[in-house]
Design a protein around this nucleic acid. Sequence first.
DNA 1: ATGGCCATGTAAGATGTTACATGATTTA
DNA 2: TAAATCATGTAACATCTTACATGGCCAT
Lengths: 193, 193
Amino acid sequence: MFRKDAGELTELEGTTLGVIGKKGECTPYAVRREFLESRSPHWSGSAGAIYPLITRLEDRGLIRVARRTADARVGKVYRLTSAGRQTLRSWLGTPVKEDLVGVPPDPLRNRVEFLLLLGKSEQRSFVHDAMTRCQEHLGRLREWEAEKERDGDLNVRLVLRGGVRMMEARLGWLGEVAQALGFAVRPASAANT
Amino acid sequence: MFRKDAGELTELEGTTLGVIGKKGECTPYAVRREFLESRSPHWSGSAGAIYPLITRLEDRGLIRVARRTADARVGKVYRLTSAGRQTLRSWLGTPVKEDLVGVPPDPLRNRVEFLLLLGKSEQRSFVHDAMTRCQEHLGRLREWEAEKERDGDLNVRLVLRGGVRMMEARLGWLGEVAQALGFAVRPASAANT
DNA sequence: ATGGCCATGTAAGATGTTACATGATTTA
DNA sequence: TAAATCATGTAACATCTTACATGGCCAT
C-alpha cells in the first residue's frame, strides 16, 4: 500500500492522474465525482482523500494549475505536467508490475477457507446467498453494460466487461464450491464452466 | 477500510480470527507465518500489523490467552472466546454483506481505462505482457493446486480453485481487450470464452 | 560463549476513513 | 432573502507499512 521509490504511485494516485490525463484538465471536485459516481465502491472518493492527494501530486510536480474559472467556488483547474504524463505512462506501462499480475484479493473467496467453522446449514445459506446476490449484481452490471453500449467510450466498456467476466467466473466457482460441499446446484445460471 | 460498528471487523481481523478458529489455538507468530507463507501477497504479515491486531482482538474480548508454553520466547497461546466465535460467525455468515458481492478491485483492470493515453504499440506491449505474465502465474497456481491435491484440506483447495478461475477469466478478458483494440490474438491459451 | 535465528514487540510515517467547518451560488 | 447545495478544505483517528530494538534459544 506504500510506495517504495519516489517515482511510485499508489493505486488511487495513479487512477487520479489517469482521470486528469483523460479529461485533459479538471478541478479536484471533478475527480472526486468520478470516484463518487461512476467508479467501483472500493474507493469512497472522500474529500479527505482527494484534496490532500491533489496537493501531493502538485508538490511532486506531476500536475499544475492551468487556469482559474470565473466561478470563485471552483477556482483551480489542474493539468498534467510533462513529468506527470511521464509518470503516468510508467504507472500504466510495460513491464507490468508483479503485483498487478497476481490473483486480486476477493473478500468472498477469502471467507470460503473458514466456511467449515459454520454448521452445514449455515454453509449452505452462505453459498446460496452469495450466488443469489452475485447473480443480481451481475444482472445490474449487464444493464449498465447495455446502457453504455453506445455512449460510453471503448475503454470504459472494456473495464465494465472485465467486471462482468469476473462475476461470471465467481458464479461458476460458487457452483463448484456448492457441489464440493455437497449442496445441490440449480442449473439456473448460464455462467458455468 | 474502517469498521463502522463496534462489532465489525476489518478483513485482516476477520481472517485472523478465522485462522485462530481453524487452528484451535495458536501463537501470534503462527498467525503471522500464515500470512507470510501461504497466503496472498496482498497482506505483508508484518509484525507491525499482526501484534497490535492481536492486542486489539484481546482487548475486545474476542480472543484470550489459553496457556503458556515452556518456551519463554513463545509464551502466549491464544484461543477464541465464545464472543469471538460468535463475531467470527457473523463475519462469515449470512446475510452476505453488500461489498463482498460487488466486483472486487483489480489493478490490472483498473489500468485498462487509461490505456488510450499510451501509443498503439505501447498498448500492444501492455496487453501482451499482461497476458504472458498472467499465463505464467496461472501455470504456477496450477502446479500449486496439483501439489495440494491430496494434502491440503478441502476449503484451501476451493480457495485456490477460485484463484485459478479468476486468472482464467482475466486471460479470456485480456484476449477480448486485445481484439477490441485491434491486436492479433494468438489462440495459444485454453482459457477463452 | 558467542553468533545467528526465532519470536515479540515498538517507532515513525503514509494513506485512507468519517465527520465537521466554511464560504459561494443557486433555488424557492 | 432564506434555505439548500456545491466545492473546498481540515481534524481526528484507524489501519497498515517499513525499519529497528530486544531478549531467549540453539548450534558450533
